[in-house]
Computed example of a mutant assay.
Amino acid sequence: MEKHGLRERKKQRTRHALIEAAVRLFEDQGYDQVTVAEIADAAEVSPRTFFLHFPAKEDVLLADADLRVDLALRAIAERDPAEPLAGVLVRAMDQMIAHAWDSDLPTGLAALRARLAASVPALQARLLQRYLTAQADLAQALLRAFPGRLDAITASALVGAMVGAVGAAALTALRRGDGPDEVRDAMRQATALVARSVT
């Protein structure tokens, strides 16, 4: 058990080192100029190790995106039967926001991703793919959580409104140069705005 824990901690340290190296190199040299081999070298691992953690270079910028979605999915699946729809949506978004505040925001990863997404087609495509997949998964989870109350269109519209509002608020705050606390507050404000329209 202890050996497994040690192995997992080492894996997380390596992953974190790859993210830090990528962020530093992308900031210094520009995204297109940096290779996977250079990121691996800066993190003192092999390119093979890089690919054990990330399928492609752009995935470094999307680190832990799946974990954030999983947290939201779990929040929806574990809802109290008496919890209202708006409350479930807010709690799911809060899980995602809290994780972003703990990881992407303080490291500068979120700000870098926002800047690069405006100019790197490969990253734009990957972000859109992740975004659409996450929305579809969240909408399906909402349908399962509220059988008979929601149809597919309504569930998709609610998730789209919430995710879109939170993403737009975060992007605006990041482009404005806000710090992690302000970005988190902007995302929470967007969540509250959408929640007020849910009955």
Rank of each mutant, 00 (worst) to 15 (best):
M1R: 08
K3S: 14
R7M: 09
R9W: 10
R9C: 02
H16M: 09
L18G: 07
L18W: 04
A21P: 03
R24I: 01
E27N: 08
V34K: 02
V34G: 03
V34M: 05
T35H: 10
A37Q: 15
A37W: 11
E38A: 15
V45G: 06
T49Y: 04
F51H: 15
L52P: 05
H53F: 08
P55Q: 04
V60I: 12
V60P: 05
D70R: 12
D70N: 13
L71Q: 09
L73F: 11
R79V: 05
A82G: 01
P84H: 02
P84M: 04
D94P: 00
D94S: 05
I97C: 00
I97P: 01
A100Y: 06
W101I: 11
W101R: 15
S103Y: 00
D104E: 14
L105M: 03
P106G: 05
R113S: 03
A114M: 08
R115W: 06
L116V: 11
A117C: 11
A118M: 09
A118Y: 08
L128K: 04
Q129W: 04
T133V: 12
Q135W: 06
A139K: 05
L142I: 12
L143P: 03
R144L: 09
R144M: 03
R149A: 15
V159Y: 02
A161I: 01
V163A: 11
G164M: 06
A165W: 00
V166C: 01
A168K: 14
T172K: 14
L174G: 03
L174V: 06
R176Y: 13
R176C: 13
P180L: 10
V183Y: 00
V183I: 07
M187H: 02
Q189L: 14
V194Y: 03
T199K: 06
